[in-house]
Each structure stands twice: as C-alpha cells, then as structure tokens.
C-alpha cells in the first residue's frame, strides 16, 4: 500500500517510487519543486492536497499516517479536512464525482477557480474546464459570475459552476461568454 504522512494541511509521500506511482494513477499531487512535471519520471517526494488524499484513502489507494507513525482512518481524515477547509464537504463531493467519472481534477488556484478539470491531463489538452463549487441554495452577487469568467487566462471566458444540492445532487452549469 502506498503511504503518506499528514503534515499540516497536506499529505506528503516521501518514497519517490511511491510518489511516481501515485502521480501516474491520475496526476494526483505535485512533486516537490517541480511545478510542471514533463512526465512521470521525476525523483522527488509528492505532496497531496487534503481533498486528493481523502479521495485516495477512500479508494484504498493510500494509507495516511501521523508524524508519530499512527495510521489515520478515513473518518478522522475527513473530519480533520472539514476542520481546516470550511467548504470541504461540497468541494469533495464535486471532486469525487468528477474523479469517479475519470476526469483529472486539480487545484484551480492559479486560474482563480476551485478546480481545473482535464479530460486527458495537464499539458495534454488546450482548454480544460474551470470549476467553481457553490451550494445550490446560496446566493451570489451576479458580478461574481463576471469575475469567474475573467479570472482565468485572458482569453478563457468559459467556466462551470457546480451547484451542490442537499442530498449530494450536483448540477453543472457551463457559462460561455456570448453576445446575443
């Protein structure tokens, strides 16, 4: 079983062979000091975000340990994630839904979104989806929609709002800039 250590709000896989194996599974995590890995043959520890780590643990692909060497079970890891990521519940639902369908889901921070979603993988396609996760019964300022459209790359104006309903139903709305 692949093993990671919980360090703050991330899980680090120190064994570089295991690190490569996890990354190969579906572009999970980021090799230390390699912002854009050219391939899966890097030689570095891998850091996973908590959302990624929970998903891997839930799918029995990873075991997470504390720095004291104690194994952390899934339930505790989820509770911990919720305590440090207030929107963890809805973020994780969307992450899991898209991952389960085979999409590559990574942090969208550099595009100003929650996730950037690929069908093939980073660097392999031109226009990934930018996904913003929201609770369906929340209200938003319409200007946030305009901001979401403009936050990404200057030419990228399409994005998805993932509306999470109670009961975990998700509705995905794709916004495309238009001039009717």
């Amino acid at each position: 079983m692949l093993e990671g250590i919980l360090l703050g709000i991330r899980v680090v896989v120190f064994d570089t062979t295991q690190a490569r194996n996890i990354y190969k599974l579906g572009y999970y995590g980021k090799p230390l000091g390699i912002p854009k890995p050219k391939d899966t043959e890097f030689n570095a520890p891998l850091e996973l975000g908590l959302i990624e780590a929970v998903y891997l643990v839930e799918n029995k692909l990873l075991d997470v340990y504390s720095t004291k060497g104690e194994k952390i079970d899934l339930e505790y890891l989820k509770k911990y994630a919720l305590s440090v990521i207030p929107r963890f519940s809805e973020l994780y639902l969307v992450y899991r839904d898209l991952r389960n369908r085979g999409y590559i889901v990574r942090s969208g921070l550099k595009y100003g979104s929650d996730f950037v979603v690929y069908e093939k993988g980073p660097g392999l396609e031109h226009a990934p989806y930018l996904v913003h996760v929201v609770k369906a019964y929340d209200q938003i300022d319409p200007l946030d929609i305009v901001r979401a459209g403009r936050l990404g790359h200057s030419v990228r104006k399409d994005f998805i709002l993932a509306l999470v309903y109670p009961g975990n139903k998700i509705s995905y709305l794709l916004f495309e800039w238009s001039k009717p």
Partner: peptide
C-alpha cells in the same frame, strides 16, 4: 456582460 448557459453533463 452576457453569458450563455448550458447544462454540463460529465
């Protein structure tokens, strides 16, 4: 600013 919306079905 206009946006056209579609339902995205993964």
């Amino acid at each position: 600013t206009y946006y056209s919306i579609t339902l995205f079905r993964p």
